[in-house]
């Protein structure tokens, strides 16, 4: 829907709630989430689609929110780590991430937490190769990934 000032009204479901925002046609989803909806867990590492720290679950799939225009997100569903609070999955993720030292500075961490959640929900039988493949979309400069990969594996293994 186009307004008179060139702004567009967009309706999207964010962390389980319907939200309405007015955005410029070229506004990126990352900016809408951070600036208009206050979801600061969505990090801005590059804005060129390389680092993955802006990853959100977009209609259930991990997607880089700096590559999505909010205008395209009309009617879509977005989940950020703020939306996982209190869930069983988040309790388990917290436990396996802390136990494995799967984060250091924490800047890439919300993205990897979402990846863990996605694996648990959508790919609970993912093989090590599939986990590695999925992890390739998020950069981490601190950990060397070994402990993150271990945490992701443990997140989906029910031992």
């Amino acid at each position: 829907m186009s307004g008179t000032d060139g702004e567009i009204q967009v309706k999207l479901k964010v962390n389980g709630r319907m939200r309405e925002v007015r955005v410029k046609p070229n506004e990126r989803l990352i900016d809408t989430l951070r600036e208009k909806l206050g979801l600061k867990s969505v990090k801005m590492g590059c804005l060129t689609g390389e680092c993955g720290t802006c990853t959100v679950l977009y209609n259930g799939q991990p997607v880089k929110s700096c590559l999505v225009l909010t205008a395209e997100a009309d009617g879509k569903e977005v989940i950020t780590v703020e939306g996982l609070a209190g869930s069983d999955e988040m309790r388990r993720i917290t436990e396996v991430f802390a136990r494995n030292n799967a984060f250091q500075c924490g800047f890439c961490t919300p993205a990897f937490v979402l990846l863990a959640y996605w694996l648990m929900k959508v790919k609970p039988k993912a093989t090590d190769e599939e986990i590695l493949e999925a992890s390739n979309s998020i950069l981490c400069r601190c950990t060397g990934y070994t402990q993150i990969l271990q945490a992701l594996k443990e997140a989906i293994s029910r031992v």
């Binding site: 600061k40 780590v81 996982l84 609070a85 988040m90 436990e95 802390a98 030292n101 919300p110 937490v113």
Partner: peptide, 20 residues
């Protein structure tokens, strides 16, 4: 000992960086 990290606010988005 391998004591788990306690700064788990980094997992939830609570941890605030300069841009936040």
């Amino acid at each position: 000992k391998p004591i788990p990290r306690r700064d788990i606010d980094k997992l939830t988005g609570e941890a605030q960086f300069i841009a936040d």
